[in-house]
Simulated assay, not measured.
Amino acid sequence: MATLAAVLASTHHPFYLKATTMPVEQQMPQAAEWKRKVEAYRETLTKARPDLLVMIGSDHFHQLFLDNYPQFLIGKAPRYDATFYNEEREFGIPKYVLEGDTDLSNFMHQGLLDRGFDFAFSNELKLDHSIICPIITTRPQADLPVVPIYTNIFAPPLPSPRRFWELGRAIRSIIDEYPSDKRIAAIGTGHLSLELGGPRQFGEQGPDPEFDLQAIEWLSTGNIEAMLDSVTHESMAASGNATHGFMVMMLMLGIAGADKASYVDSFDLFHTMEAYFTWYPEGARP
């Protein structure tokens, strides 16, 4: 059977690459520390020695629109083009071509259907920065095949926080049953409190610092019960209009199994709190 070698959950900031590679004299004061933290986080994946990556993110209305926006979608292509024009223009993110793993994609899709998740699928999926940002931060050589999974955090009505957790548990059981000797890492990116286009977007810190600290505590200790008791669509909206991306972090805890995180770090980037978590499941520790 396959080995779940590591589970990584982090925020994804599209300006990271541009902010840390521009000429030093033009960089923001936080750039060097930001880069140091990301490179330390990258080591947690490198140590796991993965053979392929299951990537969980959300399409930012680049390919999925209100005329047809699935709650959950899996990519089943042999390779994936990545990065849309506006991401190149605004964020400085380069184009990528990532190899897929159709065998695991097909096995995962069937397993999800068998567990009551009616997933959409795409054989022609193009990836945006919710997938490419964690490639840049954790595997910049982009040399591993990927199985991408998109979740709906933008287009109401949204799945419940509990449904995201349950999906994480389903993905974990499928990886555990996958008939392969490969080491699989699961990487997902979402948000803590986040405001996009609203009055709290460019404050001195994230829109809800109290939620951010509580969310880091929940994730670092694996306290899914407290999250499911406390986190609702309404509470996330009160913390910032894009905070629903936190449900992807809850999904990743579902894959990890509600264990205490092996690695926790965070970075207060004046308008948002960046956070980084890694779990090494029992029996797969590097």
Rank of each mutant, 00 (worst) to 15 (best):
Y178Q: 08
S266L: 03
G245K: 02
L52K: 15
P159Q: 02
L53D: 06
E99R: 15
A2Y: 00
E39I: 05
Y280R: 04
K35G: 08
F107N: 03
P134W: 04
H129A: 04
Y85S: 08
V24T: 12
T232A: 07
Y69E: 05
Y276T: 08
P140C: 04
A185D: 09
S239Y: 00
P78E: 08
L66K: 05
G111F: 09
S130E: 03
F202M: 15
Q205T: 15
T137L: 10
I175G: 04
L228H: 13
Y280S: 02
M55T: 05
M236Y: 00
E210M: 12
F164E: 05
R115K: 13
A238Y: 01
T221S: 15
A170T: 12
T11M: 11
I153H: 02
E90K: 13
T272I: 15
Y80C: 10
R200Y: 13
P179T: 12
D259E: 14
L8A: 01
L8C: 00
D103T: 09
Q205F: 15
P156I: 01
G254E: 09
Y69W: 08
M236G: 00
Q71E: 11
Y41E: 07
P207S: 10
F246L: 08
R169C: 11
P70F: 03
P134A: 08
M247R: 05
Q30E: 13
A215D: 02
E217W: 14
F117I: 07
P145F: 11
N241H: 02
Q63M: 13
Y80Q: 09
Q30L: 10
L213W: 09
I153P: 01
S180V: 10
E225R: 05
I135D: 11
H129F: 10
P209M: 14
Y80K: 10
I184N: 00
N152W: 01
E124A: 14
F61Y: 15
F107E: 02
V54L: 12
A19N: 11
K95D: 10
D118R: 15
D259N: 14
L228V: 15
Y96V: 03
E99L: 14
Q30R: 08
V38K: 12
